[in-house]
Design a protein around this nucleic acid. Sequence first.
DNA 1: CGAGTTTGACCTGCGC
DNA 2: GCGCAGGTCAAACTCG
Length: 236
Amino acid sequence: MMSTTNVNHSLFEEQDQIPTQMGLFNIIPFPPNQTYPPLGCQTVTLKSISAIAPSLSSAANFSETLLSTAVNQRPREEDLTSSLVGGGGGQLLSLSRSRVNSWAWEEVSDCLMGKRIGGDDNHHHHLGVSAMKMKKMKARRKVREPRFCFKTMSDVDVLDDGYKWRKYGQKVVKNTQHPRSYYRCTQDNCRVKKRVERLAEDPRMVITTYEGRHVHSPSNELEDSQTPSELSNFLW
DNA sequence: CGAGTTTGACCTGCGC
DNA sequence: GCGCAGGTCAAACTCG
């Protein structure tokens, strides 16, 4: 299953790669004409993130910076372009703001303001099978979690992010030969999901989309508790 | 035997 | 309203 991740953020920044026990994952820039990630995705460089928050001393801070960048820099075409040009081939991350989920960005703001999205988790749990459940599902869809996605070059589909995931579905997506896999965090009360798929244009590239925010620490925390700046915290 | 994966069926949202 | 595509469920299956 998922092995643990112990990544120093500075390594991540300086080497364009995320070392994990499963191998090295390259952070690859999105070309300007890239069709994925879909509508509204914003691409930012690690450098630009650092410029916003120079005190990026820990991956935890980094995660917050990702969020605030997402909120404060609504993706305009010129932003995207300048980001890409200015990136000079550096590490790029993509923050998803699809048209469908644009309303979720207010929730991202709430997150940053300390109003955790699933703070009252009671109405978010997956409950039994019934019409009631369907009603709840319906209601839940209206408060969809914010998402972000990024692209990595990797032989393995599932990035080791320190959390434990259970696969709950797989779907063949139209116009792609590679199926999309759906994972849910195995932790009780944690509703974070992720989707993993390979890029149609370049099967070496893995697109990972996270939805929601973990309400707990990574599963390998006990093993690696002495290292505050590990990538696992980067993934909320 | 329990935990995780597979996979077909079903549901929902969206575009036309 | 209809059809399509994406997302989820859950029974069956696999594996350690």
